[in-house]
Amino acid sequence: MDVLYFAWVRERIGLPKEKVESQAATVNDLVAELSAREDRYAAAFADLSALRVALDQELSDFDASLAGVREVAFFPPMTGG
């Protein structure tokens, strides 16, 4: 699946987008896999209450299933307007 990062999450992890091969069942599982990779991921995902997640471009939750999902995006709370 494609994993996208925006705003300070993108800066902390150091890239806007990557392909991830994962069998993670839920967003939380994916976060755990990524956090175990390298410190920069662990730092970005340290406080999930400061993050939002979108699955296939719809806002979702960290306990949501990744079944059939092609695009996951992590970002801080939005500041539009």
Binding site: A7, P77, G80
Partner: peptide, 21 residues
């Protein structure tokens, strides 16, 4: 303001900072 995926960053003489929601 809080459901459309935009993020603002303020760039000043002394640095840059993401605007917190």
């Amino acid at each position: 303001k809080s459901r459309a995926p935009f993020w603002k960053k303020e760039v000043t003489h002394s640095g840059a900072e993401w605007v917190a929601a």
